[in-house]
């Protein structure tokens, strides 16, 4: 546990002192700020502020375009970079369990990604301070949903990062996986029968838009997001340790 904590602290610190991470964060805040300003300027949102959380945490452009792209960029340095500079092998042979390595890196990325959403939450505080009457259950519900979806995307990105030393493959693969998780269910959502039912049960924007951002906490959505995150973490662990299974 101590080794896990030490590694987690090291990863968080290395992110906090990485100019690249702050450039990412700055771009994230800029795009979110632009989106926030545009949406807030619309008649629809001004006539009912309850529409704002779904725009920013649900079916808006943010979820469809930005959210899948940022976690892979944050995660490439976690395994792919270590692999490239040759520090992964020493880490995996150090006296720390392999699953602790995976979890420490994952939770470090999660903690840093909370900063991403913290900035968005700041925009809602700004709105409240400017006289907007917000339904905080929807804002916080939407935020919880968006954070959980981000954690899922971080897990897929971590897995992609573990594929090898190629940074482009790590980042591109992670983004491709995330976009697949978003778009494939949307493509088959209207199909009848089992295919349509499966697609609807995996539809991330629906979880956000019709559940979390509407102030409704759905147990299945929670299980899906956490379960899928655990699955990708397990796949990352398998990718890293499987070479030891065959002498």
């Amino acid at each position: 546990m101590r080794a896990f904590y030490a590694l987690w602290k090291r990863e968080v610190f290395s992110m906090l002192v990485s100019p690249f991470a702050f450039v990412l964060l700055g771009f994230w805040f800029l795009l979110n700020g632009l989106m926030f300003a545009v949406v807030l300027d619309s008649q629809a949102v001004q006539s009912d502020l309850r529409l704002l959380p779904p725009y920013l945490f649900g079916s808006g452009l943010l979820v469809w375009l930005l959210l899948p792209a940022f976690p892979p960029l944050l995660c490439i340095r976690l395994f792919a970079e270590e692999h490239r500079v040759g520090t992964l092998e020493p880490l995996l042979t150090a006296p720390i369990r392999d699953c602790a390595v995976v979890l420490a890196k994952y939770f470090a990325a999660c903690v840093f990604f909370l900063l991403f959403w913290g900035g968005v939450l700041l925009l809602f505080f700004l709105l409240q301070w400017s006289g907007g009457d917000l339904d905080w259950s929807r804002v916080l519900g939407g935020l919880v949903g968006a954070v959980l979806v981000s954690f899922l995307f971080l897990a897929t990105s971590l897995w992609a990062s573990s594929w090898g030393s190629n940074l482009v493959l790590g980042a591109g693969g992670g983004a491709a996986l995330n976009y697949m998780l978003l778009f494939v269910p949307a493509l088959f959502e209207l199909n009848e029968g089992a295919l349509g039912a499966i697609a609807r049960s995996m539809h991330l924007p629906n979880f956000l838009d019709r559940g979390f951002a509407a102030g409704l906490l759905d147990s299945y959505a929670l299980v899906y997001l956490i379960g899928m995150s655990v699955l990708f973490l397990f796949l990352t662990w398998v990718r890293l340790v499987s070479r030891r299974w065959v002498p």
Partner: peptide, 12 residues
């Protein structure tokens, strides 16, 4: 499956 209504008015 459980769905909890978090809205202030309970009408979500």
């Amino acid at each position: 499956r459980v769905r909890i209504d978090l809205s202030q008015t309970g009408t979500g």
